[in-house]
Every structure is written in structure tokens, then in C-alpha cells.
Simulated assay, not measured.
Amino acid sequence: MDYWILALSWAIFYTTHSVFAASKLKRILKEKLGSAYKWYRLFYSLFSLLLLIGIGYVSIQIPTKKILPGSDISSYFGYMAATFGTIILVKSSKAWSWKEFIGIKEESDTKELIQSGWYARVRHPLYLGIILIFLGYFFVASSISSLIHLVCLLIYLPFGIYFEEKKLLQTFGKTYETYQKNVTALFPKLKK
């Protein structure tokens, strides 16, 4: 039962993430809230943080049941994957404003499509970083809970990417279409 609660918690988190990020909802709230809309992103960030804390709480309440025997090799690969994922997250997040992302600073009306750094290699480096962190966690912990975290993420990502790219196509049009054709979604092409 604990594993179902953990999976349901992730389903709630990912669903609310997609709903709150939807352009249509943002337009409606902008009309209804007027000048108070500037607090929407901060509210959303705090709400997401609370949900993540809840998922963490649920996760640590579940007794650890290993599904793979732990080894130095799996731990090594796990730490390497998580470290590389963290590096990708940090490096790619330098391309945009953390204050805008969290909601401390109001989003600017003029947006520019980022196509440099990690964004020149993959369209969604943040998702790639998170996949590597969750994968690393699974290799280190080798537990059912860590597998559920990873599987829930992998189930959500195609949907999350679909909705995000739909929004990016509306925002950037042909520029984003060209970018889509030249840069892979998650995994960088190996150079010849």
C-alpha cells in the first residue's frame, strides 16, 4: 500500500505541475487576478515545494526493501550519474533567471529562446539532469521506492515534454520548429 501512496503522490505532483504550467490557465488567472497575478509563480513554486516535501516524507516512511544487491560498482555508477545530472542542472540553469523561475521577480514579457550551453545539446537539459539523479539514486539505494521514483518520472516525461513543447511552439513558432529539428529532446547525439 505504501508504494501505491508514493506513486499516487508523484502522480498528483506531476499533474499539478502540468496544470499550473498550462498557458490557458495562466491566461485565465491573469485576467481574473489582475495585478495580483505577479504572485502566481511564487505561489506555484511554494506549492510544488510543499508537495515535494510531502513526497519525501512519504518516501522515508516506507521501509527499505532492496530489489538489487548493493555493490561498489552500482554505487559508483549511481554517484557518477547523480553527479553528472547535478552538473547538467546547474550548468543549464545558468541560462535563465532563478528569481523569475521561482517567482520572486516578475517574468519579463520579452522571451528569448535559449539555444546555447546544454540547450545546444538537448532541448530539455533539466529533465535529463533529473533523470540522471533519479537513476543514480536507484543504483545507490537499489530499493523499490527508488525504482518507483524513477518509473513515475519516466512515465510523466513524455507528457510533460509534449505540453511544454506545445507551449514553446506557440511562443517561438518557426524558431522553435527549427530548433526541434536540429536538437534532440533528451539525449545528446553522439558526434561522428
Rank of each mutant, 00 (worst) to 15 (best):
Y79E: 07
Y79C: 05
M80H: 09
A82F: 15
T83M: 12
F84S: 13
G85Q: 11
G85K: 12
T86E: 00
I87F: 08
I88V: 15
I88C: 03
I88L: 04
V90G: 03
V90W: 07
V90L: 00
S92V: 01
S92P: 02
S93C: 14
A95H: 04
A95V: 04
W96M: 15
W96S: 06
W96E: 02
W98A: 13
W98V: 01
W98C: 11
W98R: 13
K99Y: 05
K99E: 03
E100N: 09
E100V: 06
I102M: 12
G103H: 01
G103E: 01
G103S: 06
I104S: 01
I104T: 03
I104G: 00
K105L: 10
K105S: 06
E106V: 15
E106M: 01
E107Y: 11
S108A: 10
S108H: 14
S108P: 02
D109C: 01
T110L: 03
T110Q: 01
T110C: 00
T110M: 00
K111H: 04
K111R: 11
L113Q: 08
I114C: 11
S116C: 02
S116Y: 00
G117A: 10
G117F: 06
W118M: 03
A120N: 03
A120T: 03
V122S: 14
V122W: 15
R123A: 15
R123N: 15
R123F: 07
R123D: 15
H124C: 06
P125I: 00
P125W: 06
Y127Q: 14
I130L: 03
I130R: 02
I130G: 06
I131C: 10
I131E: 07
I131S: 12
I131Y: 10
L132Q: 01
I133F: 00
I133L: 02
F134I: 02
F134N: 15
L135A: 12
G136E: 10
G136P: 04
F138M: 09
F138R: 14
F138H: 15
F139W: 10
F139R: 07
V140A: 03
V140T: 14
S143Q: 10
S143L: 07
I144R: 12
I144N: 11
I144H: 09
S145I: 02
L147W: 12
I148N: 14
I148G: 13
H149N: 09
L150Q: 13
L150N: 05
L150G: 06
V151M: 12
V151K: 03
